[in-house]
Design a protein around this nucleic acid. Structure first.
Lengths: 151, 151
DNA sequence: TCTGATCCTACTTCTCCGGTAGGCATTATG
DNA sequence: CATAATGCCTACCGGAGAAGTAGGATCAGA
C-alpha cells in the first residue's frame, strides 16, 4: 500500500474541512493548519472537487466545503479520488490479471489483500477519524502486538 | 497496495521454484514457464538472492533453488525483497509520520491498514499458494460479496 | 474598482519502472 | 583443453509519474 503525498494531503485537508463542516474554508487556511504547500494542495483539492467530494466556492471569501456529512465520506473515497484504485498489480486491477500453471491462484490472493484493505479504508469515515473513535475492528488491528513495528 | 511487475514476477518465479523444490531451475526455464522477460527476471532473482530467499548455482546446469521449504516462505517476504516495505506513506513507514490537529489519529489508520495487509500476505506461504489451499481467513476475504468487483 | 479567492495551463526536477545489451566469471561435459 | 550453458555485473534507455512551482485568467463580494 503506497499512500502518496497527494493521498496524505487530501485526507488531511478533508479532515480539516470535516472539523469545520459545513463552513467554507480557503486553501490558504487549510494549508496553514496542516502545513501543506499551498499551490500543490490547490491541485489536490481540484481532484476532490472533480470527484464530487468537496464543493468549491469562488470569489472573495470563497473556499471549499464537504458535499456530504463527514460521517458519509469514507477515507477510501478520498484516496481513490487522488491516487487511483486502492490495489493494483502491474498497473491492472487484481481481478483482471491472468496467470498460468502454478501461479493460477495468485489472483485470489491479490483480491483477498484488496478486500482486507477495503475492510479498513472503506469502513472508516472522516467523522470517526477526526474524533479518534475508530471502528472496533480497526482499533484491534492497530493494537495488534507488533502492529507499530516495522518489518 | 501497488504490486509492481517486479513483485508479480518474483512471486511467480518463486512459485515455479516451489513446484520443483528442491531442484535447481534456470532463469530461462522460469521465464519460459511463466512467460516472463528473461533478462528482467534475472535482475529480480538477484534481489531474491540478496534477500536470501533463493540460492544461485553457477556454471553449466546452474540455476536457482529455494533456500527454505516452500511452506516456510511467506509471500510478504518475497514482496519486501523486491519492492520495499508493504506499506508506505509519503515514502515513510506508517508509524513514523507525524500529524497535527484534527489529523492526529491518521497514523493509527495507516498502521491498521498495514496490519490488515500483513494478516494476508505474511500468513500465506508458497506451498499454500501453489496448491490453492489458502488459509480460511484469506479464502473468506476473497469470497466476500463484492471482492471481485472493482470500485 | 479593489481584493481575495478559485481555476487553468504550463513547466521543472527528480526518481523510478520496465526492459535491453554486452561482456565477464563459473562449471559440467566431451 | 575447448565449448556451451549458465549466473553476475555494469551500463544504458525511454517513458511515466511524483512533487512542486509560476503566472495569469476568472469570479464574486465589499
Amino acid at each position: 500500500m503506497r499512500v502518496s503525498a497527494r493521498g496524505d494531503y487530501a485526507v488531511r485537508a478533508a479532515l480539516a474541512l470535516a472539523a469545520r463542516h459545513p463552513a467554507t474554508v480557503s486553501t490558504q487556511a487549510l494549508a496553514d493548519e496542516q502545513r501543506l504547500p499551498r499551490k500543490f494542495l490547490e491541485a489536490v483539492l481540484a481532484d476532490l472537487r472533480r470527484a464530487d467530494v468537496v464543493r468549491a466556492v469562488r470569489g472573495c471569501d470563497g473556499g471549499y466545503q464537504l458535499t456530504r456529512e463527514p460521517n458519509q465520506v469514507a477515507v477510501a473515497t478520498i484516496l481513490r479520488a487522488v491516487d487511483g484504485p486502492l490495489a493494483e498489480v502491474r498497473g491492472m486491477r487484481p481481478e483482471e490479471v491472468a496467470y498460468v500453471g502454478c501461479a493460477e491462484h495468485l489472483s485470489e490472493l491479490w483480491v483477498a489483500a484488496r478486500s482486507a484493505l477495503r475492510d479498513v479504508l472503506d469502513e472508516v469515515n472522516l467523522a470517526q477519524l477526526a474524533s479518534g473513535r475508530l471502528p472496533s475492528r480497526v482499533r484491534r488491528l492497530a493494537a495488534a502486538p507488533d502492529a507499530w513495528q516495522p518489518r
